[in-house]
Design a protein around this nucleic acid. Sequence first.
DNA 1: CTGAAAGCGCTTACAG
DNA 2: CTGAAAGCGCTTACAG
Lengths: 346, 346
Amino acid sequence: MGVTIRQIAEAAGVSRGTVDRALNNRGRIKPEVADRIRQIAEEMGYKPNQLGRALSMSKNNIKIGVILQAAETPFMQCVLEGIERAKDEVDSLGGTVLLCKIPHISGRDTIDAMEHMRSEGVSAIAMVPIEEEEIKAHINLFVEEYHIPIVTFNSDMEDTKRLCFVGQNAFQCGRAAAGLMGELVGGCGKVAVISGYSSNPSLSNRVLGFGSELKIKYPEIELVGPEYCFEDNHLAGQATEKILKENPDLKGIYMTSHGEEGVCRMLAKYGRAGTVKMIANDFMGKNYELMREGSIHFLIGQDAQIQGYEPVMILFRLLFNGEQPKGELQYTEIFIRNEYTIPENL
Amino acid sequence: MGVTIRQIAEAAGVSRGTVDRALNNRGRIKPEVADRIRQIAEEMGYKPNQLGRALSMSKNNIKIGVILQAAETPFMQCVLEGIERAKDEVDSLGGTVLLCKIPHISGRDTIDAMEHMRSEGVSAIAMVPIEEEEIKAHINLFVEEYHIPIVTFNSDMEDTKRLCFVGQNAFQCGRAAAGLMGELVGGCGKVAVISGYSSNPSLSNRVLGFGSELKIKYPEIELVGPEYCFEDNHLAGQATEKILKENPDLKGIYMTSHGEEGVCRMLAKYGRAGTVKMIANDFMGKNYELMREGSIHFLIGQDAQIQGYEPVMILFRLLFNGEQPKGELQYTEIFIRNEYTIPENL
DNA sequence: CTGAAAGCGCTTACAG
DNA sequence: CTGAAAGCGCTTACAG
């Protein structure tokens, strides 16, 4: 066990309260005394016990709000697991997490949720933002007027006063896919991209990263598409069929969004599953299965749980210890998996 | 804030001590009373506050010993960071971690360290074992006679009474490399393996996994080697030269151990860097650099920090909460990285 | 079998 | 500017 505040108090011949004031710069203490106490603490190798600290501070009840968008999707379900993990941790440290799940995507609901959280007295908010001016203004309002710090996750909102962002670097994700695809097809031939929505910034950035890196590193690869499938298997299948018909010599497909199953089914129908190299995103749905059977060659993914866990913990550490986040952009790791590196518990 | 033991005591009309006895099955309580209290706790949604628990239990001072082997190597330095992280966490929860670094590899020193830890009164040990009968016997002695649970990490010691193992599944790691190599070389041609020591089980398992999976999935690939380089760059270069001379049509090299730089230098000398596809292990030394410059195509690695962190925390959770580890073999994730997925802080 | 009390290390009004 | 005391939620001897 370490040195305690009581031992320092005894060594310095003062009360514990005085030691506390000295060590935590709370003022209302004679500077010389404070200096002397700090020195003694230093000499004795004092390290504050977080347990005592947390228990004693749990009266203050740090309350953190979380707003999740599109909460029904499989990906967000994983993010949710991370949020729950953070919630348990915060709970066990005497804080509270207030969670608001918005089933689909709604700017109106988001603003309502923010206001609700404010009325509940949260001291900070972690949220998935939406590209709307009103939301942007609201984030700035909360941060500047109400002094409620905000962390964005999953999607960023760059030109706001948000504290930081936790999520994937989608452009880099696309580049990683390009690096893989280039090697898979031997650096030449036709490669197609199928994406979800042209309006979704994450997906667009994957497309952009993929295309630009192919052009730089594998100039002999010809890019087909992007086609859009609206994250729908049937439409993804149709897009695949169209691509296959127009490009019988197709060597690879990069799928930025959901709809993988539709693509694989169509490839199978044309007897091309496994020979057309396929790279997809995220470790959800049937993706592992499709990889095991050889239709998908690589999966690129993110640790969805971390996206839920970190934003909450960043805010907790800020409120509890005054610890600032490490950086404004906290990109999650980009995982590459092949059929041999599928985690066992799935 | 959650429900407290005091609220339950009031609701049940008993003392807090009685609630504690009921909820933690400490006995010395009338069964009916215990049942009723448990039911009330359930109804009120009681979740014990870890903070109060930990603070109160910090009198007992849980002490965990860690024995690190070959502590001077870069890999173990990363493992060490994980140990330090766990140590901080354990400290802040009122426990103690006693660390013993053995600079090289020594069975004698390992046993001395174990005895030292016992004399210091540790309640559990996390250690890197060595393939020696004496160590094996000592592990069993500690577990069975002294009731000091032991977790092995990095290397396992399967036929002992150790609680569990945290580390890489080396065979699977080799298979993952085979899957990558197969795609890199287009499923045919000559591929070589260079390893470190034939006596090291982890390295041998990588070689085995690589070879066996190539045979199954890419029967048209011809395997050259393994050659051994004793983790030395110069010897690795010589091995590479020999392989290149004997196999001018070589398409790929899988390097199971250190010595990557020597291989890459020799490939460059023969003008084959980048065209001979190379896969190496671990995110240390110059590996990222070699990947950025295109000499290494994929790196397979493990989260070294986790190997230090988890064993300590597994033991802490066991001693503090009575929580059993999830399984006997806790394989760390096998990471695949290409030049686009190099973490930013490196 | 049960309760009252002390204690873990820290923070925080309150009194002076 | 400083101290004495109460309290955070739990556990643990001790007394009965």
